[in-house]
Nucleic acid binder design. Sequence first.
RNA 1: GGCGUUAUGGUGUAACUGGUUAACACGUCGCCCUCUCAAGGCGAAGAGUCCGGGUUCGAGCCCCGGUAACGCUACCA
Length: 498
Amino acid sequence: MTNSITSSEAPVRVRIAPSPTGDPHVGTAYIGLINYIYAKQRNGKFVLRIEDTDRARFVATSEQMIFDALHWLGLTWDEGPDVGGPYGPYRQSERTHIYREYVDLLLKNGTAYRSFETPEELEALRQRQVAAKLPPRYDGAHRELPQSQVDAYLAEGRPYVVRMKVPPHPGDQTTSTSFRDELRGEITFEHSNVDDQVLMKSDGFPTYHLANVVDDHLMGITDVIRAEEWISSTPKHVLLYKAFGWELPRFWHMPLLRNLDKSKISKRKNPVSLVYYRESGFLPEAVINFLGLMGGGMPESTGPVAEKFSLAEMVERFDVKNIRLGGPVFDLTKLKWLNGEYLRALSPEAFYASLRTNILSDAYLSQIAPLIQSRIETLGQFGDLTIFFFRDDVMPSQEVFLPKKRTLEETLNFAADQLTVLEAADWTHEALEPALKKLGEEKSWSVKENFMLLRAIITGSTMSPPLLESMVVFGKARSLDRVRRFLDAQKKLANTKK
RNA sequence: GGCGUUAUGGUGUAACUGGUUAACACGUCGCCCUCUCAAGGCGAAGAGUCCGGGUUCGAGCCCCGGUAACGCUACCA
């Protein structure tokens, strides 16, 4: 079967739909950039929608950080939770009544069903399938549950999820779904490879798949431009559009940004937080320019000049036809060069102003000053104690970070544990202290050893202003990156010694 | 394992509807400039286009078959 394509006359409406689960991600900026350009070039609308349906991973401060980061890059949206618009609300947690309504629709027309298994039962099923070398998939046990049974379960208040009934079924005998990816052509999936996806979780929140399709339709989205990782999910989405009887948007799947080793870009191997880039002193122009280099899109470039362009120039000259599908490596080396180019191009006044707003801001310095006031005898010593706030290459030697009574291996393992704790923690003194101490107790590391190791990693020294206060001022993104870079460097060191 | 996607120097990209020794940028190395380090200038090395077939006078571009990498395979997005 082939599905019809949205008529090209419809006014273009695109969107990005980040999840507020942590720091704003460089991948969000990348997809945001492409969407922004696409909309601007066609006089379309660019929508920002917050996909906060995952309660477990929700981070309260994340949404504002996403707004700030995108604004920092100069990407502005026409509709969104903060600016409103005719298709709101733009926060999925405020639309749950809508999803419920549409799920009922599917339940009624026989394209979805309730499934009453517990997570444990599903896990057991999965284990059995994996053991038998079968593809792990829902077995459809509750697909055709008798109505009496469903009513009985419902009456006893048994929790359930709603699943999509992937054809073939009485209302739809098709065995495969094809859709057009605008960058790749037709892609086909056999239904035997499409799982009966959960559409609504037992907590009443929709999954991405349901919320996404419902919102895209209700918000009049004409072009879904998203990352390649969604290709495998697209048949589910197409099936949903079909179940609702809705017209399909165009699908564009952009290549995935990669680490140096070609895996999907990840915080373990690359700074991915936009906050990190801002706080480390990258200019938004450079970041945008660099992102624009990823995956092509700009016309043939054969000179040093052609590789440097502004957001406005991208809107002018970017062409989706030029997009390359190989996953581009997000290589900091080139970004740094580009950033240097932009820095050098600044007037001395602008450069100084940038320094003052980004690195030497009053806000930042006034937080640092109290940390060292009682620790210095002349103002001239300010730099001695605070240099780690302003350096990029802090890397303690083994004699600095390794506790006397610990082996290298257990120390690095503990540092990795610290990283895990820090990643999950709210970035306040009140939250960090107990979290770290708890870890120390669990692993039998004294408070002194515990904090000293982290101090060494963050400050590069065994002597510093109060650690936790310093980390709070230094910021989560950069602190975490410092720990990750430390672990990474130690790992490489160990490998070269072998 | 299954399904899907992708494949040009170390990295990002270029190469008109197949047409000369595969181009540019980053990085690397060398030289110049210079009190140092950058920046800047000049130059060099580095791919024969994942592999194997085929079509063609001619293939990075077309066809077939492999391989590898990556993604998905959650009541995460």
